[in-house]
């Protein structure tokens, strides 16, 4: 008789095969099986919800796709009064503000992660880590408020004039200093995504087996050399995953961005000019949209955002799992 194939789904249902009765058979009484099915039904809600969201968004946005086709994504103009709907300004605004945010946040977050996971003594690493986690707990609307009344004026009065003065020759820094705009959004997003990137990064670094860094230290490496030579290469995929998670969060962030980006659906090459993102335009216009095409176009923007964040999350999770692999099924062995 052949032993069970381990590649077969290993559920806790036990299959015993016996000569003559070659049918797998379930143990446990009926009530246990019902309980298992009940919890399985609850566990399926996440699956169902994701599917329902995709379906619902697709359905709601159908009129927009029918009217504009895939050209909707490349459309440069968004003008509800003329029934002109194109997603490009929002896509560009979203990508620009998020990339700027990550550009600013990643080096800092990496530093924080390394400090928390490798360099700081345990007594310091715990409270510091909790402090960083607290940063992530502050509601985004509060960051938006702070951005609106503290960051934007500071940018308008101090930072942007200086930028125009020094780097004004570059198209990136052209324009009048208004405060509101891609730069403000990028900064707020950087501040907001930093904690989560740092915390996930810390956990990824901690998942690297201690033997690696100890090996390097035993060979006479300094702390930093151990980190750079033994830990970081092992953790690279996970760190990229952490960054992608942060990117996903930045792409979908709504309130803080809507409050500081200026909300103008324009394509401009400058970080100083106001713009709008997928999430912020939905937040601003959805409740007031009355005609069905406008609603459909907004839903279509939502669908694009949903699809992009979904893909990003998928990729990020896979990368993070590679390092800190879930002890899936192994724990009962």
């Amino acid at each position: 008789m052949q032993p069970l194939e381990p590649s077969k789904p290993m559920t806790r249902l036990v299959t015993r095969r016996r000569p003559g009765r070659d049918r797998p058979r379930r143990e446990g009484d009926v009530a246990d099986r019902r309980f298992r099915l009940l919890t399985a039904a609850f566990a399926s809600t996440s699956v169902v919800l994701l599917g329902a969201m995709a379906l619902q968004l697709a359905r709601a946005s159908k009129p927009a796709w029918r009217r504009f086709g895939l050209g909707f994504i490349g459309g440069q103009h968004w003008d509800p009064s003329r029934e002109l709907y194109g997603a490009l300004p929002f896509i560009v605004g979203t990508v620009a503000s998020s990339l700027l945010a990550l550009l600013l946040a990643i080096p800092v977050a990496l530093g924080v992660a390394i400090l928390l996971a490798e360099l700081a003594p345990g007594r310091l690493a715990r409270p510091l880590g909790q402090l960083v986690e607290l940063l992530a707990a502050i509601p985004s609307v509060v960051y938006g408020l702070w951005g609106l009344f503290v960051l934007v004026p500071w940018l308008r009065v101090t930072v942007q004039p200086a930028l125009v003065e020094t780097l004004g020759a570059l198209p990136l820094f052209r324009g009048t200093p208004r405060g509101f705009g891609v730069l403000a959004a990028g900064l707020v997003l950087a501040i907001m995504s930093l904690p989560s990137v740092a915390v996930v990064g810390r956990d990824v670094l901690r998942a690297v087996p201690a033997s690696h860094r100890e090996g390097a230290l035993a060979l006479g490496a300094t702390r930093w050399e151990a980190v750079r030579l033994a830990v970081l290469p092992q953790a690279r995929a996970g760190l990229v995953g952490a960054a992608l998670l942060g990117l996903g969060r930045a792409l979908g962030e709504t309130m803080a961005v809507a409050m500081v980006i200026g909300n103008r659906p324009e394509l401009s090459g400058s970080l100083l000019s106001p713009a709008s993102t997928l999430a912020s335009v939905v937040a601003n216009e959805f409740a007031e949209a009355t005609d069905s095409l406008h609603l459909a176009a907004l839903s279509a923007l939502g669908l694009v955002l949903f699809g992009v964040t979904l893909l990003l999350n998928l990729a990020a999770r896979l990368l993070v799992w590679q390092v800190g692999r879930l002890p899936d099924g192994a724990r009962r062995a």
Partner: peptide, 28 residues
């Protein structure tokens, strides 16, 4: 033994003369 995933048992265990692995026996 059987509560661990991926395990299997064959043969008989007679407790007081009755096989505890008999079909329909409640392991509990």
């Amino acid at each position: 033994h059987e509560v661990v995933p991926g395990t299997r048992v064959e043969g008989k265990v007679l407790l007081g003369g009755v096989d505890i692995y008999e079909r329909g026996t409640d392991p509990a």
